[in-house]
Design a binder for these strands. Structure first.
Lengths: 345, 345
DNA sequence: TTGTAAGCGTTATCAT
DNA sequence: ATGATAACGCTTACAA
């Protein structure tokens, strides 16, 4: 048998023949409809439908030298902050006829690099990167010397790329300020400032707020990670102390951490939240929503980050050589819930 | 100016020249290393590194006619069941040198179709699809007559494609059976069997269990959606009744629903969970984990679904014309937690 | 291993 | 609009 006689994938040439027009006309119908009369367009579209023609993007990218897809490498899709970013980016991309493809690095630096490499090979128009964060100042932005237009999300300003970040120092400050205004004076910060750069920044903000009020003290309670389990450990450690030795306000560096802390307290009747100890989280992570006691947190503008980043990327693509990297810093918003202020009803 | 004199993107030809070998040899080094001597390979790799050469996949796909990337269109990445699928699929793909790109349809049928179309245009090797579920028997599997190898996840068997699903009827049965064995006899099913096919199947399973025991009654409590808010509404409705009119066991068709129900009960002291009313959820969704009272649920094998689906897809790709669609049904597992059985300690 | 060359399915340009 | 044709960057086959 020479080759299956059936169903070869139709090409533009086949569509042209079927519609009785020139190949170039089919291409025009698809890419520059305004250059083709409505009657001819109709014929072409009918032929496309009849044949089940699906344009070949590989050929398109190769010939045109440009792609209309954007790649987004995300550090952790299970965190709603990052998932929200993809929503914002996607919405913005759709407005401009761009497609968004996702890759989950899952907090694995090697996978992050592999996906960036993949997108580079695919010659996507550009990439959005919410990088694996470490305690390093700059997250080793773009791996190879390849001209891959990249916007960094949830990142600090760097010379290598446009960035959009959230003011973590401010977030820490707002959390501490909130507790201080509620009259708390023995604060505890749960989390390790060295764990990741954002955590260190939040801690710095907390310290700034504390330094403004001499009567307020701060204690650091390091944790291994920032999961609920680590929070429960913190909670138990606090419960093991004499009541007079306990803090009256805890600033957790992540929602899941706060969640675990609250959970540990709720499992006993020794400590009431927030009456005895108020607790704040960070991220407004839906995975920690609606816990027994809703947790006061700092909402990170996820969708906005994604949308802003996508716009910055489009600017960069449009500007070409004359482009100068820019940096946007968005502000977190304090969401007061029952873990710091009892329900008023 | 003719064209920017600087940094043109290097091609294989440039690598070949730099390394002092033939173009075909560079291609071989990349695709069939065993055909090239180690010494030459080293030279080529050095040239690739020096030039910062990044192979062009568009050209590769076009020339070879095959791609090594798989597209995965996911209905709802915020549900950990589906996110787990992507992890399983990715792990399996990586084992065989395939890349996995994600697209989030976000429960939007139009976006689902658009992404499938995109993957078809990209000529990916195949696609995995966790479709938007409706109450229709078959989720209008593959949109166009294009030969896009597709495996459906979280789906019932269909003639059009390979599928891997989870036995929802069994899940409903196991949940009801569990409550019955705990001595509950006035059961309530929260959720609308018509909302989506899986819900209807879970309800059928519940009925089967109920029918096996004449002394147990079942009541249906429809909801609009399956979110925490709908659960709170169910909880309030139950609380509004006389205690004697209340169920002693509630089977929620989703974790968030169960979550809302439990929350409503916890906010009063009228009903204790599980002593007065036991509650089960469905999905083992991490978004509902670690609630005040951990919720008994049916864990869906997410990672396994993804891995199995990817393997089925690879079989399909390998078998070509002789392929016959197959169907796998995985079983959910009952995870007993405190919303049905009080902590033993 | 080399060197050559025929595709792969588009885009884009040209004169008609 | 047409018809023809040169890219685009790679894979693959072939003869040397």
């Amino acid at each position: 048998m020479a080759s299956s006689p059936d169903s070869r994938v139709p090409r533009m040439e086949d569509v042209a023949r079927e519609a009785g027009v020139a190949l170039g006309t089919v291409s025009n119908v698809l890419n520059r409809p305004q250059k083709v009369s409505p009657k001819v367009q109709a014929k072409v579209h009918k032929a496309i439908a009849d044949l089940g023609f699906v344009p070949n993007r590989a050929a398109r990218v190769l010939a045109a030298g440009t792609s209309s897809t954007i790649g987004f490498v995300v550090v952790d899709l299970s965190n709603s902050f990052f998932l929200d970013m993809t929503r914002g980016a996607e919405r913005e991309a759709a407005l401009h006829g761009l497609n968004l493809l996702l890759a989950n690095s899952d907090v694995d630096f090697n996978r992050e690099r592999a996906y960036l490499e993949l997108f580079a090979q695919e010659r996507v128009a550009g990439v959005l990167l919410a990088p694996v964060t470490t305690s390093q100042p700059v997250p080793t932005a773009i791996p190879h010397a390849f001209p891959l237009h990249t916007v960094l999300l949830n990142s600090d300003a760097t010379e290598d790329a446009c960035t959009v970040g959230v003011d973590n120092e401010l977030g820490g400050y707002l959390a501490a300020r909130h507790l201080i205004e509620l009259g708390r004076s023995r604060l505890m910060f749960a989390g390790s400032p060295d764990f990741a750069r954002p955590v260190g920044q939040r801690f710095a903000g907390v310290k700034r707020a504390i330094d403004e009020v001499p009567t307020v003290g701060l204690e650091l309670m390091p944790t291994d990670e920032v999961q609920a389990e680590d929070g429960r450990a913190v909670g138990r450690a606090v419960l093991d102390r004499q009541p007079s030795e306990r803090p009256d306000g805890i600033i957790a560096s992540a929602d899941l951490l706060a969640f675990g802390i609250v959970q540990a307290f709720l499992s006993t009747s020794e400590v009431r939240v927030p009456q005895d100890i108020a607790v704040t989280g960070y991220d407004n992570n839906r995975a920690a929503w609606d816990s027994g006691v809703p947790i006061t947190t700092l909402a990170q503008p996820g969708e906005e980050s994604g949308a802003v980043a996508m716009r910055m990327l489009m600017d960069e693509l449009r500007e070409g050589r004359s482009h100068v990297h820019t940096h946007t810093v968005l502000s977190p918003k304090l969401l007061v819930r029952e873990s710091t202020v009892p329900r008023s009803s």
